[in-house]
Simulated assay, not measured.
Amino acid sequence: MKISIKRKDAFVSYEAEGRTLLEALNWLKANVDATLAYSSGCRSSVCGSCAVRVNGKEVLACAHQLQEGDVVEPLRNVPILRDLAVDMDKAYAMNAKAKAHQSSFVQDVALSVEDEERNALQSDCILCGSCYSACPVYAVNEEFLGPFALTRVLRYVSDKREQNPKEKIDTIQINGVWDCTLCNACTLVCPQGISSKADIEKLRARSAMLGYTDPSFANFGGGFGFDGSPHF
């Protein structure tokens, strides 16, 4: 089966064998070109390390069913190490920057089944980076906290055991929830079916409850609809 793989600045065509893209990449490395670089791990859509772009969309190589003429590229918005292998360190660092983790001390409260289900989907994130690759905001603003970091923030501020959810909400006001365009590109490529768009909308609502507003509204201060008089 003929596929094209982006290597450096050019696409190279190969005749490959395999049911999935990852099987084809393994076959090519073993039988055609041992220098081909890509990442893989569990081969079961759990670790997220094999995320790439195929025909312009982010997928997991281990889950993508190989098709004639597939065009394979590395993820966008992250440094390329070689071929399809990318460096996700900066994207992962956004989790720490957004305080997307449980506080050191948690409240000793019992969780109901409903409490556990509330955060179940957000907990399924496998950090594959597909959402960062698809995100148009992260493409132009490398300081944007990004989809999976914000999803993880919601997971923790929604946890009854979290002692200081406001601290996390405070942290995501700059380069965070208000910078997202709500385009939904992240949701469309998430292999776990997580909607970071919906999560960010919930974080905006929580931010508003704490007195925060979209800072872009300040650009319209004194304009029509704010002080009751039009300006021409």
Rank of each mutant, 00 (worst) to 15 (best):
E117Q: 14
V72H: 04
V52F: 01
L84R: 02
T20K: 11
N55Q: 01
E116D: 13
L22W: 05
V46K: 08
V78G: 08
A16E: 05
V78F: 10
N55M: 06
D83K: 06
A34W: 15
S40H: 12
V78Q: 09
R53K: 13
R7V: 07
K99V: 11
G18A: 04
K8S: 15
A110R: 14
L75Y: 06
A110N: 10
Y14T: 03
R7S: 14
K90C: 15
K90T: 12
K6T: 05
K57S: 12
E117I: 10
S44N: 14
L111I: 05
A120R: 14
R118Q: 08
V59N: 05
S39F: 01
E68I: 04
A51H: 02
E73I: 04
D108W: 14
V113P: 13
A100S: 12
Y14R: 07
S44C: 09
E117V: 14
S49N: 05
C62D: 03
D115V: 08
K6R: 10
M88I: 11
N55L: 04
N31A: 13
E68C: 00
K8M: 09
V72T: 08
Q102V: 13
V52W: 03
N77I: 06
H101D: 13
R7K: 11
I5K: 09
V46Y: 00
N95A: 12
V54H: 00
S103R: 07
E23T: 10
K57I: 08
L121V: 08
N26G: 01
F11C: 01
Q102C: 08
L111R: 14
L121Y: 05
A100L: 08
F105Q: 13
S112T: 15
A51V: 06
L28K: 05
D108C: 07
G69P: 03
L25H: 02
L25Q: 02
A30M: 08
A85S: 11
M88T: 10
A63D: 05
M88R: 15
R53G: 01
R7Q: 09
R76S: 12
P79V: 04
F105R: 14
A10P: 03
D89Q: 10
V59W: 01
A24V: 01
Q67C: 11
Q102Y: 14
S13C: 12
V12R: 13
N77L: 04
S49I: 05
L36D: 00
P79D: 13
Q65N: 11
H101C: 12
V86S: 07
T20H: 05
M88L: 14
L81P: 00
C62Y: 00
S39E: 11
L21R: 00
E68T: 12
A34P: 07
D89N: 15
K6Y: 02
S44L: 15
V32W: 04
V12A: 09
N95S: 07
V106P: 06
F11L: 14
E114G: 07
L21G: 06
F11K: 11
E116H: 12
A51N: 04
K6V: 02
R118I: 11
K57Y: 10
